[in-house]
Write a protein that binds this DNA or RNA. Structure first.
Lengths: 210, 210
DNA sequence: AAGTGTGAACCTCTTCACAGCA
DNA sequence: TGCTGTGAAGAGGTTCACACTT
């Protein structure tokens, strides 16, 4: 139950949110094709993913929603939860902080960091901004394992090194700079400019095919 | 030169930025393995991508940087450029607007939209925020083809329909809600919560393997 | 009859291994 | 010799087709 494909992990995260939404609506069972429809994917895909986490559906009613949510939680979450820091408190850092606050989940944003004196002490949804100089101490003291990087590109590599030194185990890089981390640290990169250029490319392509 | 793999398109976008950076440093040729190093990928990957766009390197000097940048531009960009709207002018919308402003590129953010009266008329880097009620007219008049969606989840599907009606040809969805669009409209989805949960999963996994 | 579970085929993307060129 | 270009193998991910269950 541990060696899941990355794409399955991504979908499990999405399934869970959709399923939680179903629960609040009082729905207690769901067919693979109905879950698929909510995500605009195929029913086989759903069944394959569910199979990989060892869950099993009932043949007349589909999957028990509560059971499936629990199982996804067992797979995705750590028992004790994990702590997250947002590094760089510009618009993007604030946006992400806002996304996570308030959701009772196993992931908690505990701190954000910036270098701009005007931002120190500021809060978004209860998450406070600290100065970079406290990065290492706070990350160690609060046992933060995950960092979300939204700093300006020129300082990204150096900040990354500091995060690794501080003991961070996973980095989500929103910077437009490719990063390199030692093995043992998980790195996930997302580049918005690339995404928009990708959309532009396929729009152009569709347009030509008209 | 048109039917490129999605992943290659993504990397081309990244290559271009790295190469432009090389140019400003006065570097006029680059080996595949040097470009690879800058992106933390393999040289074969670079050569394969370059091959797919029909460029060819010199055997003693590697690739001509200027030539390669031009070729990537021919592949990725439309001649006339494309116009972009940011829909939803919260922190995320502002962050993205800021990312694009100032870069002289073939992609121009021309407008942003929100429903909050306090935001109407506000600007980020010269991009003005308009009320949703003007969505269709402005998109049509300005010939905007790409929308970046950063609205709250509950209104995302409805806003999407309106964008499609207005003639948008590509949507980049930052909402946490899966969307569905008619064929002919290109949809790219990015879910931050999923990304963070994915990082958390692999951190947990690495930790267990210790 | 209408679902789930899954081997096998298929497609996409990456890497290997090496021919060919300056 | 040290690079590029590329067929072929491999890895990762999705879909087909169908056996199985109630």
């Amino acid at each position: 139950m541990n060696n899941l494909p990355g794409k399955t992990v991504e979908r499990l995260s999405a399934y869970r949110r959709v399923l939680l939404n179903c629960l609040t609506k009082g729905r207690d069972h769901i067919f693979s094709h109905d879950l698929a429809k909510l995500l605009y994917i195929t029913a086989v895909q759903v069944r394959r993913d569910v199979m990989l986490i060892g869950n099993t559906g009932m043949h007349k009613n589909g999957y028990n929603v509560k059971e499936l949510v629990t199982r996804i939680g067992e797979v995705l979450d750590s028992k004790e939860g994990q702590k997250v820091a947002v590094v760089g408190f510009g618009y993007l850092g604030k946006a992400i902080t806002g996304y996570f606050a308030g959701k009772r989940s196993k992931l908690n944003v505990l701190a954000s960091f910036d270098i701009n004196p005007k931002k120190i002490g500021a809060k978004v949804k209860g998450v406070r901004c600290f100065h970079f100089s406290h990065l290492k101490t706070i990350i160690r003291n609060k046992k933060i394992t995950i960092a979300i990087l939204t700093v300006p590109p020129d300082v990204a590599p150096e900040v990354t090194n500091r995060l690794v030194e501080a003991g961070i185990k996973g980095i989500l890089n929103f910077t437009t700079v490719p990063l390199n981390v030692p093995s043992g640290v998980y790195l996930e990169e997302y580049d918005m400019i690339t995404s928009v250029e990708k959309v532009a490319f396929f729009v152009k392509k569709n347009n030509k095919a008209e």
